[in-house]
Simulated assay, not measured.
Amino acid sequence: MSESLSLPIASLQKRITSFVIDDIVITLFFIIIFYDQFSAVLSNITVVDEAALENINAFIAQNLLVVLSIKLLYHTVLIWQNGMTLGKYFMKIKVIDLETGETPGFQKAFLRASVRIPSEVLFYLGFLMAFFVPLRQTLHDKLSNCVVVND
């Protein structure tokens, strides 16, 4: 896309707020899916001590793959379908393919979501790129050749 300099790049503040909204939504999905198990773990806690924290950590570790799968599906499907997650929708920003200027296809959306997860796990290092590059691209944006713009 030759007019990349004239793109209405989304602000970091909007992107951060969108990220927080999306994480809240994903957490709600997780709580809804595992409500019974989560309730059982929490009901056994009378005092927050080392044993209680170990039970919570064990529960999270046992279900980590499900959490990562929910994140991957959420970000892939919503970006592929309309370029926006719920957080992006509320912040009025969207992801576009730099080559076409359109919503990313399934492969790019999947690649973007796949790289996003290790970026989060590794202390958000992939996200820090957005502070230093002209188009405010994170690692997952850069590798998928996408950019987040105002809608």
Rank of each mutant, 00 (worst) to 15 (best):
S43W: 14
S39P: 10
P8T: 08
S114V: 05
V133T: 13
T46W: 09
Q81M: 07
F131P: 05
F30C: 13
L128Q: 06
R112Q: 03
N63E: 14
K92P: 02
M91Q: 02
L73C: 12
V147G: 10
L7W: 06
V133A: 06
K142E: 12
A52Q: 11
V133G: 05
I16H: 01
F131S: 04
Y74E: 04
Q62G: 11
N150S: 10
L72E: 06
F34E: 15
L7C: 06
N44D: 15
L53M: 14
I31T: 13
V149S: 05
V115C: 01
I79W: 01
L98H: 01
K94L: 00
L64D: 13
K142D: 11
V148D: 01
V121F: 13
G101L: 01
L68P: 05
S69V: 12
L64H: 10
E3F: 10
S18Y: 01
N63D: 13
S69H: 09
Q37W: 15
I70K: 03
A113I: 06
N82V: 04
S114Q: 04
F34I: 13
F29E: 06
L128N: 07
E120K: 07
K92Q: 05
L111K: 05
Q107N: 07
V148I: 12
K14P: 09
A109Q: 03
